[in-house]
Write a protein that binds this DNA or RNA. Structure first.
Lengths: 247, 247
DNA sequence: CGAGCACTTGATCGCTTTCAATAGCTGTGG
DNA sequence: CCACAGCTATTGAAAGCGATCAAGTGCTCG
């Protein structure tokens, strides 16, 4: 049974992202309406979900896996501008053409709606519009956080920042605290990390090796990371470690 | 008569940002409600309008002048994360504490609302909530555009990108096209440009000198800029000059 | 006229990129 | 079963770009 098939006949009540997605505020009636127009799609790691410049025929939520938004310059330089985790929304109501490439970084399952019906539903359902505003404001905050990382942090701080963000997200999903050591798998290749951080993949590799050599992180294989001391990592990220636990 | 005094007794119908601000979609009734709770505040260039971490007691729109959002690290490195032009909205409904410093880059006049009454009005006025969603999505696009600039462009391309954005905005406000030469005043100091672009002010100065020496721009004084050939500038910015005129 | 500020320009330093070689892993086919 | 291709990642050496440190210009204002 494929991952997608697990979702195909499930209903919204049981959805793993039910409480975080664009539908989080919806009541039973509204959910029923959404249920009637939703459909699932799955994408393999590496696949492009939407091409920049394409007509956008659907919007939707990431249910499982990780997708990324990227921009590419004519000469091939690319910058990731968004990392889409489960519950994140893809697409912009009211816009015809996709402004960025959307790529599946891991295998991805999305809960989709054709754009027109969704827009109509949104116009009559303040709960959806309100939730979407909230999520967009959160994304804007995240984007501004990244502008500081991109503009002012050193390569080492950039890597530490990315690791600390992934660590915190994993801790929040798995409901474990940030007290003891944190263990997770990197969902990104070195190249994807470089694209996110505005670095080359060689620099990413070197900085990860350095953090490992100095005991800030431990690696098993290339992707399995242990962080013995979160406070230490956040110092390396240049963040105020006092504020970091508020998330 | 101060700039602020010009607005104090004006009504919304005559407001210069009436058609672009958060109130753009409001009908006469809604405007009347807003009118009853609005008040104007003015700030001098250099003044801090809101401190990061402060309680946010009001939200509002920039009516005249330019403000900036900035983040500062513990060691003093700062990154501008938003440039607020007339009609841009300040503040986040539903949030208690300001996440960024808001500073007046030039003299600024704002149309303010106490947060509580505004939030209540927003809950009952879909026109406002809808417009705010639209504006937030636009800001998110702008932030992502800047992530490409910060992460992947050279110093020269960064400067050219900033100039081209200011030039386009000025052309759109003054209703002149982008065909002939474009003339405008830089609203930012070299240091503010550096903070926006993730550079030092020396590098900003050097790159502006270089663009001037090569005839991409002309300078009278330090701030008055002429762009003889917008296509040329956009090439220097690393942008596809085909797409640039769609704005 | 001198202080203060925004800006420019020069010289040097160092971090990140670039170019290049190599290692480790996985899957394929002889 | 092993050889080899293809991919991801690591590591080294050298180059280049922007930062840093420093001096000086031009302007405004008291």
């Amino acid at each position: 049974m494929t991952i997608k098939a697990q979702f195909d006949h499930s209903n919204c009540e049981d959805c793993p992202i039910r409480h975080r997605a664009v539908c989080a505020r919806c009541d039973a009636d509204e959910l029923e309406e959404l249920e009637s127009i939703k459909y699932y799609r799955s994408f393999e790691a590496g696949q492009t979900i939407i091409w920049s410049g394409d007509q956008m025929n659907f919007v939707g939520s990431v249910v499982a896996g990780i997708a990324s938004l990227t921009q590419t310059m004519e000469d091939g330089r690319t910058q990731m501008v968004g990392l889409l985790l489960p519950s994140d929304f893809v697409g912009r109501p009211g816009r015809e053409v996709a402004p960025y490439d959307v790529q599946a970084t891991t295998d991805v399952v999305m809960c989709c709606f054709r754009k027109k019906p969704f827009e109509e539903l949104m116009a009559t359902t303040p709960h959806i519009a309100h939730r979407l505003l909230q999520m967009t404001l959160d994304e804007l905050d995240a984007a501004r956080e990244w502008m500081l990382v991109l503009g002012r942090k050193t390569a080492r701080e950039k890597i530490a920042s990315l690791l600390s963000i992934i660590a915190r997200r994993d801790a929040s999903i798995s409901q474990k605290g940030l007290a003891g050591p944190i263990v997770f798998d990197l969902p990104l290749t070195r190249e994807a990390m470089a694209d996110y951080l505005g670095l080359t993949l060689e620099t990413v590799s070197r900085q990860i090796s350095a953090l490992k050599k100095e005991g800030v992180i431990t690696l098993e294989g290339k992707r399995h990371v242990t962080i013995p001391d979160m406070g230490r990592l956040m110092e390396e990220a240049g963040d105020d470690s006092d504020g970091g636990f508020l998330v």
